[in-house]
């Protein structure tokens, strides 16, 4: 499935958060969105996922999701959003329960996604027993369970320490190699974006606008850990904005 964001604007009260955003997300492509904090990148993702309504413009999808896709646009959240009263297995089960699947069918899916995210031994654990990285693995497993067409990732690694986020980033890259999912990946980490993105969209401070789009042609698997040159280029675009954003008041 491919997505097109067409001329989308969004205001909260009389605060313009996003201004005329145009963006195309191609099938099998990971589009990274970077920008200073408060630039509306999470809002953009929620708009794409249908959790909010744009004031003007539209978000359009093309192509029919495969028949076994239970939830075409699926989120992976920064704060994991696991239900603390459900075990790992039951947290994944939650998103399958409304689809009239047989119990054996459901268990089959759960077993498969737990295996793919290396969580098999943790199926009976409570979220509070897991480390941050493990919690996010559950978040990823839950997203994979519904066989999504597009993964909408909202800073999925930001709440993790840098070692854990490196490990999970590699896992995500391997996962993409196997499944070639389409994805919008919000992050504020430049090197993360350079590692996993096919296209990097740089946004400006409020009102959020697209400043530049950078395409990276090299295969994701073959990339170096750092690409200093590109990182510096992106940082030059962002530095002043990030410094100005730092002094802004939240939700003013």
């Amino acid at each position: 499935m491919e997505l097109a964001v067409k001329n989308v604007s969004k205001t909260y009260g009389n605060l313009l958060v996003l201004n005329k955003i145009n963006l195309k997300i191609d099938e099998g492509q990971i589009v990274c969105v970077i920008g200073p904090s408060g630039c509306g990148k999470s809002t953009l993702l929620r708009l794409i996922g249908g959790l909010e309504n744009p004031d003007t413009g539209s978000i359009e999808a093309r192509g029919i999701p495969p028949s076994d896709c239970l939830n075409p646009l699926t989120f992976i959240f920064q704060d994991f959003s696991l239900l603390p009263w459900r075990t790992v297995e039951k947290n994944i089960s939650l998103v399958l329960e409304d689809h009239g699947l047989s119990t054996s069918n459901r268990n089959e899916i759960i077993r498969s996604v737990l295996r793919r995210t290396k969580l098999t031994e943790f199926s009976d654990r409570w979220p509070r027993e897991l480390s941050g990285g493990m919690k996010q693995r559950v978040g990823i497993a839950r997203a994979l369970a519904v066989n999504p067409s597009v993964l909408l990732m909202d800073e999925p690694l930001s709440a993790l320490d840098s070692q854990t986020s490196e490990i999970l980033l590699v896992d995500l890259i391997e996962l993409w190699e196997k499944q070639r999912f389409t994805s919008v990946y919000i992050t504020h980490n430049l090197s993360e974006a350079i590692r996993i993105g096919h296209k990097i969209v740089v946004m400006s401070r409020r009102p959020g606008e697209i400043r530049e789009t950078v395409n990276i042609d090299s295969e994701i698997m073959d990339r170096e850990i750092r690409n200093i040159e590109l990182e510096e280029h992106l940082w030059n675009l962002l530095r002043d904005e990030a410094m100005a954003a730092e002094w802004e008041l939240e939700n003013e």
Binding site: N71, T74, S81, L83
Partner: peptide
């Protein structure tokens, strides 16, 4: 955010 989670998975 938990309610939003529920909505995001339909």
């Amino acid at each position: 955010s938990l309610i939003r989670l529920g909505q995001s998975f339909n």
